[in-house]
Design a protein around this nucleic acid. Structure first.
Lengths: 202, 202
DNA sequence: CTGGATCTACCGACCGGACGGTAGGTTGCG
DNA sequence: CGCAACCTACCGTCCGGTCGGTAGATCCAG
């Protein structure tokens, strides 16, 4: 890939993160690259293709990052810990891209939307499988696997929405906090919600 | 408030939630209300004012909802449980508005942005105070109060991003799941991250 | 080693259309 | 009548995208 194409991508990431996809114009991106608007179209055939490129790279890297993190883990608990840790670290280290990938899906056409969502679903399924294994093995308390996976993933993903690299805590420290939080949540006993909600008086 | 003004607001909520603030045009909102575009400006002086109105109502209701929920609670733990429960229930019941309020802040001018963020900060401070009381009283394990509050609030807020009213679980059931998850997380012992992260080998 | 052909990376000028917003007229109800 | 609530018609601006063109590097046949 030419260096200008990468520059465009990086500038777009910065601007999409800062102002949002729809609020960012091609002219602005071009200005950030010190070229004219028309030249963008030499490298990218349109605005949405640029967004798609950012998202696809992010999702691919996210998945291979998780696979690499899981490769070394032995037990189910270790796998779950590794999964949460790599997820959080990736989301904080590549904060802008992951934020875009999770908040600008509406900028995609139905076909491209499906492309990204499919990758996201594959990723989620790995977590769901781990949760299921943990419950079956008696390591984790029971509960609805999908609800659990949504809670865990949105919790960790949302870290990228408030994290400031110059803040008091390092990426690794936050990852450790989240790792313990999730594991404790999974191990706790009160996860079953069958019947109890019906008894409660809201 | 005239009924048409409320109609406009409701249609705007639906569209902002569905397509996003910048991707929604005034004409579309007007079409949804069966009036012409110019008539919108009789009720709202501009697009941003409409967004601001939605956000302010949401934030005010969110706060009074929390205060009402806390009024009956006795102990710190009961307060924390009530806070999480009311927060989740509000976010699921008024999913569209809370989603807008937390994802479209970039659509506001600096002054209006500050207005909403101030209300959000006040709200967060209630949670931080409860966490602090719990830690001081030995009910919760230690940890950084702000990080904890961010984690808890983003976790519960994100529920509104995947919740489907027609899904398998009711609002109350999900609220109960989240309530227990948060309390268990706060009570668990491994929250301190001083030193341990430095020892870990990531 | 030279000179035409081709390719890369960019440019200025332009287009149709949609946007937020405005001016001023009309309607109909109390 | 008077005013609230709505309308039609229009404005300037900016958007994503296209077009024809070009400087300069590269290539390759004679």
């Amino acid at each position: 890939m030419s260096s200008m194409k990468e520059t465009i991508k990086q500038v777009a990431i910065d601007l999409f993160f800062q102002k949002g996809y729809f609020a960012t114009s091609i002219s602005e991106i071009a200005r950030g690259c010190d070229i004219r608007k028309a030249s963008i179209y030499y490298h990218y055939s349109g605005k949405e293709v640029l967004l798609l490129d950012i998202m696809q790279t992010t999702m691919q890297d996210l998945l291979s990052n998780l696979q690499a993190g899981l490769a070394q883990a032995g037990s189910v608990e270790a796998s779950m810990r590794a999964a949460v840790r790599t997820h959080v670290v990736f989301h904080l280290r590549r904060q802008k891209e992951t934020f875009i990938a999770s908040s600008e899906l509406r900028g995609l056409s139905p076909e491209n939307f499906k492309l990204i969502v499919t990758q996201r679903d594959d990723y989620e399924r790995i977590f769901q499988s781990l949760i299921g294994q943990g419950i079956d093995g008696g390591i984790f308390a029971g509960g609805d696997i999908k609800i659990l996976s949504y809670a865990i993933l949105t919790l960790c993903t949302a870290g990228a929405s408030w994290f400031r690299p110059e803040g008091r805590f390092s990426v690794e420290q936050i990852a450790e906090i989240y790792e313990n939080f999730v594991i404790n949540g999974l191990k706790a006993a009160q996860w079953s919600c069958v019947g109890s909600a019906a008894r409660a008086s809201y």
